[in-house]
Amino acid sequence: MSKKFKRSYRFALRTAFYISVFLSGLMALILYIDFSSVLWVLIFFAILTYLFSFLIIQYRVERFIYRRIKKVYDNVTLLDSATLTPNQITTDMSSLTREVKKFAENKKLEIETLKVREAYRKEFLGNVSHELKTPLFTVQGYILTLLDGAHKDKAIRKKYLARANKGVERLIYIVKDMDMITRLEVGDLHLNLETFDVVELIQASFDLLEMKAARKNITLTFDMDYIEPVYVRADRDRIQQVLTNLIVNSIKYGKHGGTTEISIENLVRNKIIVRVTDNGEGIAKEHIPRLFERFFRVDKSGSRKEGGSGLGLSIVKHILEAHGEKIFVESVFEVGSEFSFTLEKQEKVSEVVAES
């Protein structure tokens, strides 16, 4: 009980003690000195008592609040006690209210961030599990069928082994893409920067994907005839991967008899912008902010029939960010989409010759 009493009234007792000592000393001084005027004594006593009481109460209250706020700072890792000074503390508790409010807002923001990350983690793990599970079960099914006796038939054995091999190739494809994204995120992927003609690179990508586009009767074309080369400074192989992924994506979601068109425009003095435009399905507005997330698919069922790892756009984004460039997307649902990205332009042909 005494412990609780001391904890509750220690501040008031000490403050009353300091005032009592001062008043007793002041009274002793007045009695010791012979004053001729009683009124003057009363005025002098009242003024000194008022001033001292104000100072001692103000000082004691400020130190009392400051120590306890500092204890809150020291006990909560989100608050830095080094930023707190005694001058911030006032008897109206405004500093305490402000700091507690700031702490509550920071804590709420942290909780919301953790909720978003947890939701993303669950979705990401679910997507990874689904992407790996399908080819794994496919391979396992064919192997089990062969073990059950189908291996005795040469034709069935060859067919099932070929299908199992396709499943393994898909697994390797997914793992390689995930490994590349991880290396890009940690900055562990080396870029071999060189100067090259981006028009020639786009044409090479068209030639590579011509048969894939032909199956859906999609035309791969430039917006105009580029007679002069357009030189850029980048990693040729990685930019070809960017172009390939964007063109494949436009074919995958393009309509039969549609068009995938690429244009090259000057953006600023040392930058160009490459636009990949199609007249396919388009993307709903609510899906655009998540397009570059790993394994995110607008149409989960339809896109899986088309194949792919679900990592193509994420890889595109990370490759361009590794170059210090940006990618943009504009789309209208059921009208078409346009993906565009910037590259560093190389102005003079002489610079290319000198580097070669």
Results as ranks from 00 to 15, higher is better:
Phe333Leu: 15
Ile273Gly: 05
His256Asp: 11
Leu26Lys: 05
Ile156Phe: 03
Leu243Arg: 10
Arg67Ser: 14
Pro135Tyr: 11
Glu185Pro: 08
Pro135Ala: 07
Met27His: 00
Glu355Asn: 08
Thr219Arg: 14
Arg60Asn: 04
Ile69Asp: 04
Arg68Ile: 06
Ile283Cys: 03
Asn270Asp: 15
Thr113Glu: 05
Asp207Pro: 06
Leu184His: 05
Ala16Cys: 06
Phe341Tyr: 13
Asn245Leu: 10
Leu311Asn: 06
Arg304Ser: 12
Ile273Arg: 13
Ser8Ala: 15
Asp207Ser: 08
Ile111Phe: 14
Gly310Ile: 02
Ala119Asp: 02
Gln88Leu: 13
Asp80Ile: 00
Phe5Leu: 15
Glu321His: 01
Lys348Leu: 12
Ala284Ser: 00
Tyr160Arg: 07
Lys101Asp: 15
Gly307Glu: 13
Ser331Met: 03
Glu169Ala: 11
Ala164Pro: 10
Glu118Thr: 11
Phe11Ile: 02
Lys300Cys: 12
Arg215Ile: 09
Thr77Pro: 00
Asn270Leu: 11
Arg297His: 10
Ala28Trp: 02
Val332Arg: 14
Lys212Gly: 03
Arg269Gln: 11
Gly254Gln: 09
Asn245Ile: 12
Thr260Asp: 03
Arg68Thr: 07
Gly126His: 09
Leu55Tyr: 08
Lys122Gln: 06
Leu78His: 03
Ser263Lys: 01
Ile262Lys: 11
Leu311Arg: 05
Ile30Arg: 00
Arg14Met: 11
Val116Ala: 06
Leu23Met: 06
Val41Met: 02
His256Pro: 12
Ala104Pro: 04
Glu62Gln: 14
Val276Cys: 02
Asn245Gln: 06
Glu338Tyr: 12
Ser331Arg: 04
Phe295Asp: 11
Arg294Pro: 13
Ser36Met: 10
Leu114Pro: 06
Leu39Arg: 07
Asp237Pro: 12
Ala150Leu: 14
Ile172Pro: 05
Gly324His: 06
Asp179Gly: 04
His130Gly: 06
Met224Ile: 03
Thr83Ser: 14
Phe137Val: 09
Leu125Gly: 12
Gly126Met: 10
Ile111Glu: 15
Asp207Arg: 05
Arg63Phe: 11
Lys300Glu: 14
Leu96Gln: 12
Ser301Tyr: 09
Gly282Phe: 03
His323Ala: 11
Arg163Ile: 12
Asp80Trp: 10
Leu220Asn: 00
Tyr226His: 11
Ile227Arg: 10
Leu209Gln: 07
Ser53Phe: 08
Glu330Gly: 08
Ile143Gly: 02
Phe5Glu: 14
Met180Asp: 06
Arg236Ile: 08
Leu23Ile: 02
Asp74Thr: 09
Arg183Val: 00
Tyr66Arg: 05
Glu112Thr: 03
Leu114Gln: 14
Glu351Lys: 09
Asn165Ala: 00
